[in-house]
Each structure stands twice: as C-alpha cells, then as structure tokens.
Design a protein around this nucleic acid. Sequence first.
DNA 1: TATCGATACATGCAAATGCATCTAGTTTGA
DNA 2: TCAAACTAGATGCATTTGCATGTATCGATA
Lengths: 153, 153
Amino acid sequence: MSSPSASSAVRLAAETWESLFRSQVAVMRKLQSGPAFKTLPVKEYDVLFTLSKCPSGQLRLNEINDKVLLSQSSLSRLVDRLEKRGLVERTTAPDDGRGVLLSLTEAGSELQKTIGREHVRDIAHLVAPALTAEEQRELLRLTEKLRASVAGH
Amino acid sequence: MSSPSASSAVRLAAETWESLFRSQVAVMRKLQSGPAFKTLPVKEYDVLFTLSKCPSGQLRLNEINDKVLLSQSSLSRLVDRLEKRGLVERTTAPDDGRGVLLSLTEAGSELQKTIGREHVRDIAHLVAPALTAEEQRELLRLTEKLRASVAGH
DNA sequence: TATCGATACATGCAAATGCATCTAGTTTGA
DNA sequence: TCAAACTAGATGCATTTGCATGTATCGATA
C-alpha cells in the first residue's frame, strides 16, 4: 500500500460513509414524518419490530441495545414507556438474575403489525423508484457486509 | 407488475432499508464513542463539517437542516451552543431579512479540521477492512442515487 | 400599496436523552 | 468459599430535543 493510494483509500472510505449516512438521514426524515408514526415514535416502533422479528419472541435489553442508537439508560426508559402503554412485558431472565427479557404483549404485537404494514409501504414508495431490484440486492449485500464487519470489531 | 412480484418487491425494499439502517447504527455507534467526540458531540461536529465543505463558506439554517436529522428548533439551539462557544457566526442573509447565514469562525474551522482528521481515520479503520475499494465505490454510488431520488420526493 | 398567506427562524415548555452512579446478581481466583 | 472485580439494568439530574407557537419578513393579489 503506497502512500498516495493509502490517502485515497482513506478518502474513499470517508466519502462512502458520508454518502451512506446522508442517504439514511434523507430516507429516515421522510419515513418518520409519515402518519404511521403519529401514535408511536419511530424508536419505540423499532423495539417492537425487533421483538417481532426474533424467533423466541424474547430479547434481553442489551441485545436490543445493540440494534438501536440509544444509550443503555435511554433504552431502559423507552422500555418503561412501552411497558406503561401495555405494549411489552419485562421478565427476569431465568438463567441470569440480573438480566431482563422483553417480550411483546398481544396489544404490542397488534400495534407493531398495524404500523409495520404502513411503514413497509412507505419504505417501498421511497426505495423502489430509486433503485432497481438488482441494485437493491447489491445495496443490501454491501450494507450487511459492512454491518457484520463492524459488529465483529 | 404482477401481484406476487409486487409483494416481493416491497419486501426487498424493506429489507434493503433495514440493512442500510442497521449498518448506519453499527458504524455510528463506533464512531461517536471514539475520543474524537469528547470535546464536541457528533451532531455539532456535523454542522461544522457541513459548513467547511460548502464553497461559499456560508449556509442558510434551512439548508443545513436538510442534511441533518434534527427538527428546525433543535438545530436553532444547536447553533446557539456553537455560537456561544465561538465556533460559528450568525449573519442576517443579505437577500432575505428572515434568513440567517451561518459561517465558521477561525476557531470553528480549526476545531473542525482537528476533529475531522481523527474522524476520517476512524471511518477508514471501520470501512476499509469491511469492503473492497470497488465495493465502496458501488456503495457510494447506490446510496447517493437513493439520496438524490428521495430528496427529489 | 394594503392585506393576507407563506416562509425563516426563535422561544416556552414538556418530554426524551445521556452521563454518572447505584443496586443487585454473577464470575473469578486465592 | 468468600471477597473482589465484573456485568445487567435502574435512577437522579442536567442537557438536548421536539411540538406548538411567536415574531419578523417576504411574496402574491386585489
């Protein structure tokens, strides 16, 4: 790796990230301003969604925390709000007395599905006109590869 | 567009967005926890960065607001904080008495460069090992295409 | 050019967030 | 086996955020 190519490699990485970030901002802007999130903020929906996708139906708080951009304390209180609205339930983890398992209530599951249907439609309206199916598959592959690499330090 | 392919198109778009979003979360997590942002929060740095990249050196608040995921009022107060620290300057827009032009002070420009150098290095350490240069160029192209499409409604 | 609606930004206030810290349960190792 | 270090999550408190609204300016129209 020669010196000039190293510097251009750094620049390329920075520009790639910048572009990824700005596109995320642009899409998220549109999504969260839609009517789907009048009843529930996006971040709270995201927790319901994450739970709905998990096979066991239960997740530890620290597992959820890995998926969302929130501090541990903010997530704890976000879950307080969801619990107060009767959308999720906290249970002490059976194998670790310190841990908390979170699961959807029936109402939480219903609300997730209702918002989810509309949300997915909104996403499609933004993404489908922008990129071909082939491009979407490639974008999916690249972002997943990036996420996996970053998650594994 | 037949019915089954329409539904799978919707699913693909949703999965693509989900992956893009989660990768952004994973990368941002790492970036903002680095030492580069001990002195200045990422969102505040982002405003300095945006100003530094702009050829005229001045931007209207609403132009900046398009680039960041903040409400108008939050940006207004974020700028208050930057101004109080002497990093930016507000000027009334010459052609529009309602508008405010924002520009970097010398101190703001210095701080942006200092943080920016470290920030760019951090980005490279995360992105370069994850994707080849060719993949990064493709990711850059796809996210820019998505952003442009979404921005144009 | 006087009025009315729209736009740009600021501000009061309630809610959400993060940092530091606390409590309780778990693991380690002498 | 027991104390010390570690981990998961909750909580006090100051900061940040967004919603609703306020103020000032702009632009269109009659």
